[in-house]
Design a binder for these strands. Structure first.
Lengths: 123, 123
DNA sequence: CTATACCCTGACATTAATGTGAGGGTCAAG
DNA sequence: CTTGACCCTCACATTAATGTCAGGGTATAG
């Protein structure tokens, strides 16, 4: 199928499909006229790519194990687990930092409310 | 004082101080030779700017209330609270999304461990 | 005078996936 | 042959604070 059809089927933009091609994630064959020709399996492959992107993985990370997970079960692709482990560590660090900022913000908002109450309405 | 001295005193790079100037956060007077001349109060102002940047606020948001908080108490600058409220909402949304990804990652990692265990070492 | 240590502006790079537009080729229906 | 709906590549824009470099001015110590 052509790129436009794959885009409609998957809900992924033509631009993104071309980007996946560029990044080596999903490389269609080319017709004589230069058009990308996708196999029927491409639809599932796009969904797989989207799944990993939604986990916050980069195209580079996905590319490092995509061929394997499309071939055999994810559990037996040895590149996957380390990527997950690293991503999990990053996520946890980010959550901690955001929780720090959140507490900080909440304290400052409470202080503002307290100070306004202490001072009271002026009229 | 000149920009280099302020940079050393605050630990903020010269590049960033020029950026704060450009963004209207901290505008020094100029000597006849064009050099930025910072008042002694600039040091505290830089620390204030850093404090808000560390809360994840943008220079634009900071600029919207910085003059006020440098003049009177933060609690009585009415622009501050809405900015905090909005930032808090953003942070909470980000934390939720990260927690979703985190759960997803943990489940997938557990699945991998389970499947490997089920299959067992092949030798 | 010169070396050195400052200062200035302007501009590009950084991240990563996606949007958007220009300029142009392909193809099928009319 | 023309129109319209596709497709192609190339390239710039997006976010936001900061790093870095080029090219050049200033000021002080020797």
């Amino acid at each position: 199928m052509k790129i436009g059809e794959l885009a409609v089927r998957t809900g992924v933009s033509i631009r993104s499909l071309r980007y996946y091609d560029e990044q080596g994630l999903l490389t269609p064959i080319r017709r004589e006229n230069g058009y990308r020709e996708y196999s029927p399996f491409a639809e599932e492959q796009v969904r797989t790519i989207q799944l990993y992107l939604n986990l916050g993985l980069t195209t580079e990370q996905i590319a490092s194990f995509l061929h394997c997970v499309l071939t055999i079960k994810e559990a037996f692709c040895k590149e996957v687990f380390p990527v997950y482990r690293q991503k999990l560590a990053e996520i946890e660090a980010q959550i901690l930092q955001l929780q720090n900022i959140k507490m900080n913000l909440e304290e400052r908002m409470q202080s503002i409310l307290d100070e306004r109450k202490t001072s009271g309405p002026e009229d």
